[in-house]
Design a protein around this nucleic acid. Sequence first.
DNA 1: CGATCTATGGGATAGCATGGGAAAATATGG
DNA 2: CCATATTTTCCCATGCTATCCCATAGATCG
Lengths: 154, 154
Amino acid sequence: MFLSTSEHTLDSKNRVSAPAAYRAEVAGDPHQGLYVFPHPTEGFLEGGGEALIASYKRKLARLPVFDPRRRQLELLILGAARRLDFDATGRITLPKDFIERAGLNGRVVFVGRGERFEIWDAGAFDTALEEARAGARALLEDPAVLDLLGGDEE
Amino acid sequence: MFLSTSEHTLDSKNRVSAPAAYRAEVAGDPHQGLYVFPHPTEGFLEGGGEALIASYKRKLARLPVFDPRRRQLELLILGAARRLDFDATGRITLPKDFIERAGLNGRVVFVGRGERFEIWDAGAFDTALEEARAGARALLEDPAVLDLLGGDEE
DNA sequence: CGATCTATGGGATAGCATGGGAAAATATGG
DNA sequence: CCATATTTTCCCATGCTATCCCATAGATCG
């Protein structure tokens, strides 16, 4: 599972160290590496292991091949995704267009979200995190959320 | 799996470098090479490895041999498909009629879609990609799409 | 306090994409 | 059946980019 948040440096060759925990996460995969694509509408990158891409592929395969929604999603996800392999020291190299799409600028943040993770520009992420914190109290008082997180399971 | 999008040059001899990742994808096939045919109705080429053609063949075999729909589909897919082998530097040579059917004009784009990929004229692809991005927000708000991509799989 | 792992920087190297010439195969006409 | 024209295949050369490799420094852990 991809957890926690960590900041790393994007160097002049567009390389960035992947969090060691993420490398361990995909260490068992056949081609170990991270699969990454720019989010279709938001300004960050989404990533995961082979399992994530395979899951998208299976989900899209439920729609007929000629369904416009399937074709559009394939284009935005499978067509945009790239497998990024680790170098000997555990870094990945980000394609230039990914860097532009996500507005990355030196300091980048990896944010774990369970089955997947996100790569943000540090500045944009700080802003988003502040907003999330500012709204946290109201969120936790929302009856639907209370119910969702509520009692212990079983 | 065929992923990602990359642009290559169609030279004066109708040769174009196949993406290195696609070559790796079919490296294990008995006759390694790409199987390509013009889409029956749209202006691009569809391609894949041996697995793709074998899959079409199996699917068509579900219909009786004399079924007119089977005969028509065989003509449009199996009859149109060609195996394109790589030269020593990893290029394939596109037949002239494929180039005309897809309106290829110097710059061509390979688009990965999982089990298959497509070959587009760069100009036409840029337009299609822009449209897909423009409609992305609405797409991701579509309840059917939310449901499709939504929950984690078991 | 040494051993190991992680993060980062930079030079060297190998692979990829592309162009063009030479040789081989194929087609066309007599 | 041969001669010529055309197409296709093979081979080599080049610039560029990504990858490999080494070095350093800090952090972590017994």
